[in-house]
Amino acid sequence: MSEEQAQQLLYQLQMLEGYVGDLAHRENTLVTVLQEAISATESLKELKTKPDASSLVPVGLGTFVKSKISSNEKVVLNIGAGVAVEKDTDSAINYLEARIKEIEVALQDASAKKRDAEARLEHGKQQINQMMQSSRSPPQ
């Protein structure tokens, strides 16, 4: 392997390391969003069973105010791009469950891409190691 090829391989490995890092970050973000969506769905399901529930409402900077939920028939749901809609509880649960499925698919995709990139990265590292070994061994 020539020096130019080695430089190119090292550059590719650096790019792959960055890509793996980006995918790991995306994976972590998706896991966080998934947990939040599951929690929201479970909360709405629980609210349906308790018509006169109480809750803590965030008012900012980690400060909460106790509140009584007077109606569990409608919820306001953020659907993205700063848009929120009012939906009945069952529709909101259905929407969230559909989003959970989408997030799970995206998480599986990100995980598969990360595994593939990690495998390519490992293969490239093995090539570099082989090249270094062959350059160290004396000619026969």
Rank of each mutant, 00 (worst) to 15 (best):
S2M: 06
S39R: 13
K74S: 06
S2G: 15
Q14F: 05
I38M: 08
I93L: 07
V31D: 07
K87A: 07
A106R: 13
E27V: 04
A6N: 08
A84K: 12
K66R: 12
M131H: 06
L107P: 00
T41E: 13
L77I: 14
E122T: 09
A110C: 11
I103H: 01
Q126R: 12
Q14R: 14
T49I: 02
K125Q: 15
V65T: 11
G82I: 03
L56I: 00
S70Y: 06
M15V: 07
T32L: 10
L107N: 10
L121F: 08
A117Y: 05
M131P: 01
G60C: 05
L13V: 06
R26H: 12
D109E: 15
P138S: 09
A40M: 09
G21S: 13
E73W: 04
K48Q: 14
S55I: 14
V83E: 06
R115H: 09
G62Q: 05
S55F: 08
K114N: 07
S43C: 01
V83M: 05
H123I: 01
G124Q: 04
M1C: 08
T41I: 03
L16K: 11
E17R: 12
E36Q: 15
Q5N: 15
Q5W: 05
T32K: 15
A40V: 04
I128W: 01
L77N: 00
Y95N: 01
Q7V: 12
S39F: 08
S39G: 11
P58F: 03
L10C: 02
E73M: 08
P138F: 12
D22W: 03
S91R: 03
Q127I: 09
Q8P: 02
G124H: 07
K48G: 07
I103N: 04
L96V: 02
S54M: 12
S137K: 10
D88L: 05
L61N: 15
N78P: 06
K48M: 10
S135E: 14
V85F: 03
S135V: 11
G80K: 06
E3A: 13
F64V: 06
V105S: 02
K45Q: 03
L16H: 02
L61F: 14
A110H: 05
L23S: 01
G21K: 09
S137D: 11
E122V: 05
L107T: 09
P139E: 08
K45F: 01
Q130N: 13
A6Q: 11
S67W: 08
I79V: 15
E42F: 02
L23D: 01
L77Y: 10
N129T: 08
E73G: 03
E46Y: 13
L16G: 01
E73D: 08
E122Y: 00
